[in-house]
Design a protein around this nucleic acid. Structure first.
Length: 295
DNA sequence: AATAGCGGCAACCGCGTCGAC
DNA sequence: GGTCGACGCGGTTGCCGCTAT
């Protein structure tokens, strides 16, 4: 037996909202609020809509101070930075961009930013939509032909927002506390990760371990993760190009997007004799700070 | 001018989480 | 402690308008 539907699907209108429906919903909520019950709301005001649909319409379109389109370059940077940092947590990303909705940011990422990052620039999106929001043409860095198709400044200070210091970043990540606490606690104290640098020999990501000076970590032992899923590494969707190359430093991959530069990393089967239970993840900072998962 | 293809975006769907009972 | 209902979120779908042919 499946879950009971949240509303009577047969008597519910679907599809685009009419101006009249918008006006009805907006004026009611502005006067009375949602009443804490979206499911009951449409019946109250005589709308043949699902409560969830009303909620979505209000949050994504009717709510005051909503901005649509016209993403600034600063917003692009923030979205990129946070996506790299925390993945597709659109609601959290939206919380850092006043007036933006998670749906808007998700659509913007899926239709434009992701393509920018993958170097698939669209020919003339700028002229077609006539907006100034479209990004500048992509540039390929001559010394780095594979990565950073979208040429971001480095590092990017997130002005007016709180991701330019470790404590603030920790606070953001603490929002995801359940995701951390549900995972087995790795034995972090066994490992010191002061920085990630390119291997001077093959330029593969090199993890410096100051405890035993054993730097011989194969690039295949280090992978970029969606944030801390300690025992279930997941590659970043849409970031496939990051995994194909072993010739890049982490700073090439992450540095342009995150300030301070950091990278979630995992260790898979490295030196089990000396580092028991090293399989885990860190947030590693170039300034020798580490963000440990909340206990 | 017609139309096929594509991109952008609003809206829907399903699932996980949380709180009330 | 278990159940149920509502909420919130992320992924997906489908429509509409624009472009290319």
């Amino acid at each position: 037996m499946g879950r009971a539907p949240c509303c009577d699907k047969a008597n519910v209108k679907k599809g685009p909202w009419s101006p009249e429906e918008d006006a009805t919903l907006k004026s009611y909520i502005e006067q009375h609020g949602t009443g804490g019950n979206w499911i009951a709301l449409p019946q109250k005001i005589g709308l043949k809509r699902c409560g969830k649909s009303c909620r979505l319409r209000w949050l994504n379109y009717l709510r005051p101070n909503i901005k649509h389109g016209g993403f600034s370059e600063e917003e692009d940077h923030i979205i990129c930075s946070l996506y790299i940092s925390i993945g597709s947590r659109w609601s959290i990303i939206a919380a850092q961009l006043p007036g933006r909705t998670d749906n808007d940011i998700k659509n913007y990422w899926n239709t434009r930013l992701k393509k920018k990052l993958l170097g698939k620039q669209r020919k003339d999106s700028n002229t077609r939509r006539g907006g100034s929001a479209a990004p500048p043409p992509l540039k390929q860095e001559t010394n780095n032909p594979v990565m950073t198709p979208y040429n971001l400044p480095e590092p990017y200070p997130i002005q007016g927002h709180s991701f330019n210091d470790q404590a603030s970043l920790r606070r953001l990540l603490m929002k995801l506390g359940g995701r951390f606490s549900d995972n087995p606690q790795p034995t972090m104290e066994a490992v010191v990760v002061p920085s990630i640098q390119p291997n001077p020999i093959d330029q593969s990501p090199l993890l410096l371990n100051t405890e035993n000076n054993n730097n011989n970590i194969a690039s295949s032992d280090v992978s970029l993760l969606l944030p801390p899923e300690f025992d279930n590494p997941v590659k970043m969707e849409g970031m496939d190009c990051f995994y194909e190359s072993t010739s890049l430093a982490w700073s090439d991959v992450v540095g342009p997007f995150v300030h301070p530069p950091m990278a979630p990393i995992s260790l898979n089967g490295f030196d089990h004799d000396h580092h028991q239970a090293m399989q885990g993840a860190y947030w590693a900072f170039e300034d020798d700070q580490q963000l440990m998962p909340p206990q």
